[in-house]
Structure formats: C-alpha cells, structure tokens
Amino acid sequence: METKKIFCDITKCVGCRACELACAVEHSATRDLFLAILESPRPKKRIDTQFIEKDVFQSIGCQHCDDPPCVEACMASCIHKDKKTGKVDIDTKRCVACWMCIMACPFAAISRKAATENKALKCDLCPERECPACVDSCPTRALYHEARKDWAKREKNKVLIKK
C-alpha cells in the first residue's frame, strides 16, 4: 500500500490558514475552537501555510517520506515508518526532545511543543478521523489525503482538461 499523505494543490490554496486552525483544534483537549483557545498550553498546529511568491501559497506538513530522514536521525528510536500504511509516527512518550528529527527534516515539518511539554510534534494524519481535519476544513478544497499515484492521476487529468 502506498503512503497516503496530504497534498496541497497550490493553484487552489488561498492562504486562509483554515487548515492550521482546524489542525490545532483537532489536536486540542476540548476539540472546540472557542474552548481550545483557552487551553493551557494552547494546542499547536502541525501544518503550515506558507507564502511562496506573490499570490501563491501552500499548506504543508509532514510528507511521510518514502525514506524518512527523521527516522534515521532519531536517537531515541521513537519515530517509525509504519510498514503497512507508510505513515511516519512519533511515539511521543519516548521522545526526549533532542530535536535530531528537526535537524534532519527537509520540510521543516516538525516543531517543538509548548514549553510545558518539550516534545517533537508533527502531522499524525488525524488517527481518530476518517479524513484529516485540515483536508475537511479547506474551504477551497485545495488539500487532498491520498497516495502519490492518485495525486499524480488527478494532476494529469487537470492538465488534460486544460488542453
């Protein structure tokens, strides 16, 4: 099975950051926007909306790499790539906050959690949801949760339609 991860169609992303908020809320204790902003520590997003150039944006998080540098770098051996799903997960309980994974990630997709609990943090593809919160939240439907071959197919079709 090929890794399903989150793809962003840059042509549709308007940089609204809705995915960031949905992500933070999904990873909060209360799962409610109005209550999540009152939590301490405040929940942290794992996806980032980035400015590429004028009027071009993207939302990007963990790429769940085929050959993940973070897995190799983790000296506590708490990051693993699931053989079946291809998902790269951090066993937060074992994380010692050495930031070796941050050191190695080519996409800056791993961040440090709030000071009270020093742990590495990244996209976990919302294990409790059928579809990750960011994908569901995207008002322009720019985000997709799928395997690379499906994404490529979609892109190819788009080009065909354009022609």
Partner: peptide, 9 residues
C-alpha cells in the same frame, strides 16, 4: 462547515 476560525473568533 467548518467555517473560518479567524472570523468566528
């Protein structure tokens, strides 16, 4: 749904 959190807040 979901509506813009920045707007809601």
């Amino acid at each position: 749904q979901p509506q813009c959190g920045f707007g809601l807040l």
